[in-house]
């Protein structure tokens, strides 16, 4: 998996060179990243399909304009996720009157709760998932975003650092506090016994 990711990033560096030579090659970047970015925006925001597509469109235009600012020390995925995250945050700010509930499906929720809280047994039925969904929407956005990056997008600490532009200690704090907040909320709902 890690090997594949590195390979993907190395390929991206080659593609960037090709895009600089011919804009048509940008299609390759769009095709590789459209789906992951679409899902990422869906997970960290509450936007409908059309809004998400608008955001992605702006993201790709930004990526194209800023190709020369890409730092090869960074993973291409971290760079493109950072741009996407910033664009989404701007959009959320713009439409802050809309209800602030993220759209995570059952699989996503299971990933977060199983990995971050070691829940294996507790998640059993659809009712449980409804509780989990409400709980994750109750914790502050910054923790939710960090948990999504770590447990759903499966980014390591360094990648999260580069995406959120925060030092390692802050990332660790966000994840730990996010976990604790989830635990506390679940306990208060009698979902966790101890």
């Amino acid at each position: 998996m890690i090997f594949n990711k590195n390979k993907k990033d190395n390929n991206q560096n080659k593609i960037i060179q090709q895009v600089k030579e011919n804009p048509d090659n940008f299609k390759k970047i769009i095709q590789v990243w459209y789906r992951p970015l679409y899902n990422f925006i869906r997970r960290i925001s509450y936007f409908e399909k059309e809004d998400i597509e608008d955001i992605i469109q702006e993201v790709f235009i930004k990526v194209y304009k800023n190709l020369n600012s890409f730092d090869p020390d960074l993973k291409f995925s971290s760079w493109i996720y950072r741009i996407t995250r910033n664009q989404t945050t701007d959009a959320i700010r713009k439409y802050k009157t809309r209800p602030n509930t993220v759209c995570l499906d059952q699989q996503d929720l299971a990933k977060i709760f199983k990995s971050s809280l070691n829940l294996e047994e507790e998640i059993q039925n659809k009712q449980d998932f409804e509780v989990l969904k409400r709980t994750i929407n109750e914790i502050p956005y910054k923790y939710r975003e960090a948990l999504i990056l770590r447990f759903i997008e499966e980014k390591d600490y360094k990648e999260i650092m580069d995406i959120l532009k925060k030092p390692k200690g802050t990332v660790a704090t966000l994840l730990n506090r996010g976990r604790k907040k989830l635990q506390k909320k679940l306990k208060s709902k009698n979902f966790l016994n101890n």
Binding site: F26, I30, Q31, K65, N66, L67, N68
Partner: peptide, 24 residues
């Protein structure tokens, strides 16, 4: 996905969008 990428490429071409230069 294909039509989406086509849409972006045409926008780039139509608006003559260029990557900002490295020196900037």
């Amino acid at each position: 996905q294909n039509s989406f990428s086509q849409k972006i490429i045409s926008q780039i071409k139509k608006e003559n969008i260029k990557p900002h230069s490295k020196w900037k």
